[in-house]
Design a protein around this nucleic acid. Structure first.
Lengths: 231, 231
DNA sequence: CGCGGCTTTGATGTTCATCAAGTAAAGTGG
DNA sequence: CCACTTTACTTGATGAACATCAAAGCCGCG
């Protein structure tokens, strides 16, 4: 983790156009002075479950996984998400401790703001409140929906769904580098690593995807969509 | 569904002490005049997935299930929840349509408020915003956590978890009437009806619970807790 | 009564986890 | 840069967990 000591560059932050549009120029300036940017290398942990909440965080660039550990010790991935869709843990305002761990799947930049400062904005700026509430509700809804979608599918459907998720939601490309290991896919969809690999091999044999190590190319999107829906 | 045409009785509503405490006497009065209470009989649908959002709703008394239907037609229960923990669908502020169906598991009273009125409060009352944001985040977090908990368990663990949930969270009693059918438990935990029944029978045979039709008595809480954790 | 829906139980088959053993890839230290 | 170590990946074989199917019992309700 490395503190990026850049001066106020919120000007070219995408988050600004999403949330900060509710703030005045003066408030944005203030917001800027209250934030700290940190950059994380792929693999680094942003925070651990159970740690005391010190900051409201949002992902500026990169990709993160949100996860926790089960009693038996294996990882359970809550969501894999990209900028502006990870807006900290939502219990910043209700709890005292982070509910999940977060780590960087790709080099990432995270913007930190003190919860107290956010609270002061909430207290005085109605438009900001509306915006944040909407945003947090959306993030939550998305996680719940993904989980429900996955739950109703079998192994094949889950793998197909995940590949379409990376291709469509994360990278917007039919060909992409998987940001996660096979084991992490398993932790995400709740199946065993061996079966994830087996299913990817099957897809490869059937000509649905091509695999070059971490690089995946989806050759037959339609078929994958059918498998995802049916599964 | 029946409109309860009572005059302003927010005075003895528990929700008041939770959320409305952020409002002035005058605002509470206004809030009251902007709300409509409806009562639903056990089994009645409060709203269907996909319907246009007309109201921000919260459950005043009773018990509801939040659910949707999978492509293959079976029900998927998102959560079973009691007053003050169901505060409408959260996408009231972001979406146009209800994301899930909601129906009454017990006779219930639902309080309806126009989203526009809630929005106006959000815009002008910071404390109310904070409160609502916290509340909605909590509701969402709870759903996510329950889902993650269930996902990591096997059949036995899931049934044990559900029984403890009804006993501990919903009824606060070792003996209670199941508000749901066996099939609904199955829809909730994501397993087949036959296996839910089989497992309940096993628990009965092992003396962990007693079953009189819909009435369940937990005889051995400790054992159930062990099964829930281990499963 | 008698019909329909919910419940129960057993038998059978599918899906998936686990185990094991081997290969490839990616770090690590000299 | 190479040998060594570790970690990730792959595949097959086996068994456990769970779904599905079918038949029968129960219970409430018209």
């Amino acid at each position: 983790m490395e503190l990026k000591d850049i001066d106020c560059v919120c000007d070219n932050c995408e988050f600004r156009s999403i949330v900060l549009e509710t703030l005045s120029e003066k408030e944005i300036d203030e917001f800027c002075r209250n934030k700290k940017e940190y950059s994380y290398r792929k693999g680094e942990v942003i925070h651990h479950v159970g740690e005391k909440i010190t900051n409201f965080k949002y992902l500026k660039t990169g990709l993160v996984k949100v996860f926790r550990r089960t009693s038996s010790g294996d990882e359970q991935i809550v969501t894999i998400t990209r900028p502006f869709e990870f807006v900290s843990n939502m219990n910043v305002f209700s709890g005292n401790n982070y509910r999940y761990s977060v780590s960087a799947l790709e080099d990432s930049v995270v913007c930190n703001i003190s919860p107290d400062y956010i609270k002061s904005l909430l207290m005085k700026n109605g438009a900001f409140s509306m915006m944040l509430l909407t945003r947090i509700a959306e993030v939550n809804e998305k996680i719940i929906e993904q989980t429900l979608d996955l739950r109703q599918k079998n192994l094949i459907g889950r793998i197909a769904y995940s590949l379409l998720y990376f291709s469509g939601e994360i990278y917007n490309s039919r060909i992409f580098d998987l940001p996660v290991s096979r084991k992490e896919i398993a932790d995400y969809i709740g199946m065993s690593t061996a079966n994830v690999i087996r299913t990817l091999s099957d897809f490869k044999k059937e000509g649905i995807i091509r695999v070059y190590g971490k690089t995946i190319e989806i050759s037959d999107v339609e078929k994958l969509e059918i498998l995802s829906k049916r599964g």
